[in-house]
Design a protein around this nucleic acid. Structure first.
Lengths: 259, 259
DNA sequence: AGTTTCTTCTCTCAATAGCAAACATGAAAT
DNA sequence: ATTTCATGTTTGCTATTGAGAGAAGAAACT
């Protein structure tokens, strides 16, 4: 193994583990700790990691995953939990749609180890994230690039979605409300998401709890035809009743595990 | 065994093994290590591999596998010069096609200040690079994401290109050769580029001088229908004759614009 | 707190392996 | 005959690595 490959492996490990330990890396790669320290020095100089006593952590804002894009910090924890739940629902061999949301990006990160996935998305970020997986079939809808975002929208994206059919779609939204269902702030996004719903056998809405009871500008869909809502914690009794009444499963972390 | 066969063998090995070792290759091909190093030099200049201490690793998709490697190390200077020349050819209000090459990415970087551009591309990197400009109309072709790259290819990309027409297309290739014209290493890429040529009023081929005289696997196009070649320095008399004979303008630094 | 103890870090040194540049050779092309 | 190209060889130079000593940090104890 070349030094360059070792450093690359360290970076990959850091992406997943968030922190690495010098002594463990030394054992793993069968080199001296000194060598590992020098690797970390180099990576630190290049801005990818921050060294700490005993190891290193991934550099916030490191250009690894999203070199060009500002990371969105809003509700990261909730979105991570939702993404974990979504990842559990995805099986080897599935065909999927992911929309252009930060939750979708988290889902993409968490399912990279799965096999034989076919995936269709209108998110540039998801595509970039998955550009290094092998053995998948990854499709982009195409379409217009929405200003200051990484989403492809418009008639071309919509037409593309009419031509495919998938097992499961994971979609997020800006608000969900008892009377009007799921809504989004942009009509163009809502239109694309309607096509995604139509193209999938099972539709999962990823909605963190801050969006419950919110009604946004553009309606995406009522409750009919939606299979499940994924959220980061058990919703109120009121919302549970609404979900039951509309025959929607509500998926949230069950107690017992940490996180 | 000819040198070119040996280099092809090295490339094939690299695609499977991910990394090659100078000393092993020297034994395998029964040549000196120096010869292997020169082979790797050449392959690196052409952008296929990234040399490292003791050997080399594949460069295709190296941006992802080896994020911190200067993947655009290969002929950056030439590509930057070519991109500058291309940027001078692009006017406010133009409609453009950019392909999925590193030169295209450089061009995108250099034209961000222009106004009212309409741009169609099959490159995720170009889209990401331009995701923060405002007032443009940016379109993605859609299509299949080629493994370990940031290019969208396949029938969907090709069909999309049939539905649009632009003023200028900037396309790169792996080789240009007197008899067979422009060629690329992948058939899927070549097919997309053919559609790009058909979709543009003016077609510019960005070809750094290391690619002159090279013939790659998949033919893209002959000289007919190509308006200009952009390269980083004045080509040989022989190549100038070829360009004149085929009615192709050759654009290079210092007074090439008006040929 | 202060001290001890253990770990980890930094720095220097030396050994090895790999590298680049210059030059030489021989074959093929012009 | 000359040029060009691929190749090999030689010769210093550099990169990578590990070892060891002392400094610095963390943790555990009185």
């Amino acid at each position: 193994m070349f030094a360059i490959e070792r450093r690359n492996s360290i970076l990959t490990a850091l992406k997943e583990e968030k922190h690495v330990v010098v002594s463990e890396l030394a054992k793993q790669f069968e080199v001296s700790e000194e060598t590992i320290r020098r690797d970390l020095d180099k990576l630190e100089k290049e801005g990818y990691v921050v060294k700490t006593y005993g190891g290193a952590v991934i550099s916030e804002g490191a250009a690894i995953e999203l070199p060009y894009v500002v990371r969105k910090k809003a509700n990261v924890e909730a979105k991570q939990k939702i993404a974990e739940l979504a990842a559990e629902l995805i099986m080897d061999g599935d065909t999927l749609i992911l929309d252009a949301s930060s939750t979708a990006l988290f889902i993409a990160q968490k399912i990279k180890a799965k096999k034989d996935i076919t995936l269709l998305t209108n998110s540039l970020e998801v595509l970039m994230e998955l550009s290094d997986v092998t053995g998948w079939k990854i499709l982009s809808t195409g379409g217009s690039l929405k200003e200051r975002s990484c989403a492809l929208i418009g008639s071309q994206a919509e037409e593309c979605l009419e031509r495919f059919h998938v097992d499961k779609a994971f979609i997020s939204c800006k608000g969900v409300e008892a009377e009007h269902g799921f809504s989004d702030s942009s009509d163009a996004h809502a239109a694309v998401k309607r096509k995604m719903i139509a193209a999938a056998s099972q539709v999962f809405f990823a909605v963190d709890s801050s969006k419950f009871g919110k009604l946004s500008f553009a309606s995406i869909s009522g409750f009919s035809g939606i299979d499940a809502v994924i959220t980061e914690r058990c919703p109120s009794d009121e919302w549970n009743r609404i979900f039951v009444a509309n025959d929607i499963e509500c998926i949230y972390p069950r107690g017992g595990e940490n996180g």
